[in-house]
C-alpha cells in the first residue's frame, strides 16, 4: 500500500507524470534493487556519496559495498544490514525511476526527506509504514476532522483496509477521507451499528465496481447487480462490521448491528466518505456518526 502512497506523493510533487508512474508501477516486479537506493533510503549515505562510489567503480573492479566501506561511507555492519534488508515496494519503484532516468538519486533522496518532513514521520514510524503496517499508514495519513470518535474510525478503516487486502484485492489502497453534507450513492450495502457508539456504515460503488467487488468476494463471475451480487457486498460489510464489533467487545465495548441491506440511488447526509482504490475501480466506505 505504501508504494502507491509514495508514488502519488512523487506525482503530486511533480517528480514524474501519471503515465510514468503507471509504467514504473508495472515494472517494479522485475526491478533489481541496488545498494545506492537502499543506502540513501536508510540515511547511511547521501546521493552524492553514492555517485562518488559509482564513479570509483569505473576505475576499480570492485563491488559497490566494498568501495563504500573503503571510502568510509558505510560500515561493514551497515552493509550487512542493507544486503539483508527487505525489498520494499517504494524502493523498487524508486529504483525503476532512477534506472529509467526519470529521477536522479539526489531527487530520490530529496523526495524521501521531504516526505518524512511533510508528514512529520519519525524514523521509527517510517520503518513501520514502509513495511506496509496498515495501522500505522492509516494512523498517519487518514484524518477524520471534527469526529467525536476519531481513534475508533481510524481503527475501523485500518480493519477495512486489512479486510480489503485479505478478501478483495491485495493491492487495495485507502485514499482520501472527505467530510460531506450530502452524497448521492449509486449502489450501496448498508448496516447500522448501535450501543455506546452509533454509526451507519455503507459500502458504495458505481455499478461496474459493485459487480467486480461482489465477484471477488463471492469468488465467482457475476455480470449484474443481482441477488448474489447484493448478498456478496452485503456479507462483506457484515463480516467487516462483525469483526470490528468483536475487536471492540474484547476491549469491553459491546455494540450491536442490524441485518445488512442493499439500496440503489439513495442520498446519504452528513457523512465521512473514505475512498479505496482497487484494481478494478473505486469503492467507498461511508460512515455517519449519530
Amino acid at each position: 500500500m505504501f508504494t502507491q502512497y509514495f508514488g502519488n506523493y512523487l506525482l503530486n510533487k511533480g517528480y514524474l507524470t501519471a503515465e510514468q508512474l503507471h509504467d514504473a508501477l508495472e515494472e517494479i516486479k522485475d526491478a533489481r534493487l541496488k545498494l545506492g537506493v537502499l543506502a540513501v533510503n536508510a540515511g547511511y549515505m547521501t546521493a552524492e556519496q553514492t555517485e562518488e562510489v559509482n564513479e570509483a567503480q569505473k576505475k576499480y573492479d570492485k563491488r559497490f559495498g566494498e568501495l563504500a566501506i573503503e571510502m568510509g561511507y558505510l560500515t561493514e555492519e551497515q552493509l550487512k544490514e542493507l544486503l539483508s534488508s527487505q525489498k520494499y515496494g517504494h524502493l523498487l519503484l524508486s529504483q525503476v525511476l532512477v534506472d529509467k532516468g526519470i529521477m536522479t538519486l539526489s531527487e530520490f533522496e530529496k523526495a524521501i526527506n521531504e516526505y518524512k518532513r511533510d508528514y512529520s514521520i519519525s524514523d521509527k514510524e517510517f520503518e513501520a509504514i514502509q513495511s506496509d503496517d496498515v495501522n500505522e499508514i492509516i494512523n498517519i495519513f487518514i484524518k477524520f476532522e471534527g469526529s467525536k470518535n476519531e481513534k475508533l474510525l481510524k481503527d475501523y478503516i485500518a480493519l477495512f483496509a486489512r479486510n480489503l487486502i485479505r478478501f478483495i484485492d491485495r493491492d487495495a489502497v485507502i485514499k482520501e477521507v472527505s467530510k460531506l453534507e450530502v452524497y448521492d450513492c449509486q449502489f450501496a450495502a448498508k448496516q447500522d451499528i448501535s450501543g455506546a457508539i452509533v454509526l451507519t456504515t455503507y459500502i458504495e460503488a458505481d455499478e461496474n465496481a459493485f459487480i467486480q467487488f461482489a465477484s471477488k468476494y463471492a469468488e465467482e463471475e457475476l455480470s449484474s447487480v443481482d441477488e448474489m451480487a447484493e448478498a456478496s457486498v452485503g456479507e462483506f460489510l457484515n463480516l467487516h462490521n462483525g469483526i470490528f464489533l468483536v475487536n471492540l467487545s474484547n476491549q469491553g465495548i459491546e455494540l450491536k448491528m442490524t441485518p445488512q441491506e442493499v439500496f440503489k440511488d439513495i442520498k446519504v447526509e452528513k457523512l465521512f466518505k473514505v475512498s479505496a482504490e482497487l484494481s478494478f475501480g473505486c469503492v467507498n466506505i461511508l460512515i455517519q456518526e449519530h
Binding site: N241, G242, I243, L245, V246, L248
Partner: peptide, 8 residues
C-alpha cells in the same frame, strides 16, 4: 455461524 462473536 456468525461474524459477530462478541462476548455478549
Amino acid at each position: 455461524a456468525s461474524s459477530s462473536g462478541t462476548q455478549e
